[in-house]
Design a protein around this nucleic acid. Sequence first.
DNA 1: ATGGTTGGTATCCAA
Length: 266
Amino acid sequence: MFIATFNANSIRARKDIIQKWLNKTGCNILCIQETKVQDKDFPSKDFQELGYNCYYKGQKSYNGVAILSKEEPNQVSYGIGDGKDSEEDQARIIRASFKDFELINVYVPQGREIDHPNFKKKLEWFRRLLDHLKNHHSPSQPLLILGDFNVAPEERDVYAPEKKKNHVCFHESVRKEFFSLLDWGLFDLFRHFNKEEKQYTFFDYRIPKSVERRLGWRIDHILVTSPVLSQAKNCYIDLEPRTWPKPSDHTFLCAEFEPKLCTSNA
DNA sequence: ATGGTTGGTATCCAA
């Protein structure tokens, strides 16, 4: 059982490399963020041909999320579902119920600047997500939340922590919101398997040779409840997209589970 | 303090 997350920064620009990667890995479920495409233009055919069901919601130019899955989920919903969802919110989160577990794919707002209204919305977004978990989920039930959280949780997760204290992806306030999700009953799956520093999922295009110089951020995450953790075999960062001819700024964050994920706990 | 690159849409915005 193989589940992964990838910020595509345009599904159309990365379609070919995603297809190749799916064929190579046999990934069961891929969560995608920043598809940057309206629903009518989503290339679902190209993924259906490979045996994937496609669920997506997007906007022109910005945001947009998708789940590609071999197994058909019982139900799929868009937005946080608290009655406050804007069109943008719906293009930032997909919730899917599978036979043996629940899965949420998120693209958390970046926030722009600490004093920008969008940063306040980012903090609120975490609180709304936490409320959703409290109201509709339980830490004792199998749940995975994957995606681009736009937060580096700890100092070892960003290349220059002392310089980034006021960055929207490292400010104390947003890290606190991230940890409030963990405190509810989620585990940072990558950190469960990897303790070393300088393990990044995002490398800014604008910094020359950022991968080689290890100038990156760990802002993409896979958070799981304990019944899922007990079925997890490994979690790792696949750097391949960063070295492709048409490089992406994000990487694939991958997780491997026992074949019958969570059935023993269901 | 600022720049650098990429994608989508237009000659600028977001990351």
